[in-house]
């Protein structure tokens, strides 16, 4: 499953049939060129329109939506921000309490990122720089964590957390997320560490620097882009996660994450769809904003490593 094999695979080249068709060429190119433009337009519509729809519904009054469901724009007269007010104010003040849920999500995601990064920096450094028995088995770690369905882990963790009365605890949830993200984080960081010249570290070791000193003063500063990408990816997974949040937090409304809050409320009839759309926007915007800030780093870090999805 290593991506290295992908990059080094030799190109296979069957000899193309020799045929002269220069007259047909321009017509052929036109056909494919048109097809390409059509494809690009369709792809743009398919990816952007659902999010546009989300945004539009979140600022239209529910009565208008029911009256004219096929409209993909907002007329200035019907524009309303009440949906956002309702979704963000706390439950005590008659709202849906999403501000609090966002705080919970941010807390869980931040703790997950910090713990995962610390564990994976140390682990990735060991795997990429130090010789030890079992070094090659780090791929097995990957397999162990991702081969088993999360629902399989959920059963014993549900039991364990119930017995320790840790169910409903946000930090306990973060530890579960750490286990789910640490293999992919190690994978992404390891690839990056491998590109740092060893001679730099050796020089520092000779100058009397300890290994931890090397990690702190040399590896970390040099791998900042990769660290940011990995941190972002982990944040994304933790912020978006749903299953474990559902199993562990469902009875503790004050500890709900945004994802859980939205999914619980979308089942009830009392909350208007437009208000929930505002909730979706609130849930989606932080992730998209973070993503666009660091898109290039994230994409490079991902495709040179592997993925969890």
């Amino acid at each position: 499953m290593s991506v290295d094999t992908v990059a080094t695979a030799p190109p296979r080249t069957p000899s193309p049939p020799r045929r002269r068709r220069s007259r047909a060429r321009s017509r052929e190119e036109r056909v494919w060129g048109t097809l390409r433009v059509v494809t690009i337009v369709v792809l743009a519509l398919v990816t952007i329109v659902p999010f546009l729809y989300m945004l539009v519904l979140s600022v239209r009054p529910i009565a208008e939506v029911l009256l004219d469901p096929g409209r993909l724009w907002v007329s200035p007269s019907e524009f309303t921000a009440d949906t956002y007010r309702e979704v963000l104010t706390s439950v005590d003040d008659g709202g849906q309490g999403f501000l609090q849920y966002m705080g919970n999500s941010a807390l869980v995601a931040t703790v997950t990122v910090i713990v995962t990064l610390v564990a994976s920096i140390l682990g990735a450094y060991a795997v990429s720089r130090l010789a030890f028995r079992g070094r090659g088995a780090s791929g097995a770690l990957f397999l162990v964590v991702y081969l088993f369905p999360p629902i399989l882990l959920a059963i014993p963790l549900f039991v364990l957390f119930s017995q320790l009365s840790l169910r409903g605890n946000l930090l306990a949830l973060a530890i579960v997320y750490v286990a789910q993200t640490v293999p992919v984080a190690i994978y992404m960081l390891r690839n990056y560490f491998a590109t740092i010249p060893v001679s730099l570290e050796e020089a520092a070791l000779i100058d009397g620097c300890t290994r931890f000193g090397v990690i702190r003063r040399i590896s970390l500063p040099l791998s900042m882009p990769s660290l940011i990408a990995t941190g972002l990816y982990v944040f994304m997974i933790a912020w978006n996660e749903f299953l474990f949040a559902l199993l562990f937090l469902v009875e503790r409304r004050d500890n709900w994450t945004v994802s859980l809050g939205l999914s619980r409320l979308s089942g009830s009839i009392e909350v208007p769809t437009t208000v929930l759309m505002a909730g979706s926007v609130v849930l989606t915007v932080p992730i998209i904003a973070l993503f666009f800030l660091a898109e290039r780093m994230l994409v490079e870090g991902l495709t040179s490593g592997a993925e969890k999805g």
Binding site: T47, N240, S280, I288
Partner: peptide, 22 residues
């Protein structure tokens, strides 16, 4: 466009499924 194409993958699953079901 390349960045926009990643939207479905980056967006939270709860939000994406909600938009689809609506």
């Amino acid at each position: 466009l390349r960045a926009a194409m990643l939207l479905p993958y980056v967006a939270p699953v709860v939000a994406a499924t909600f938009v689809w079901s609506v």
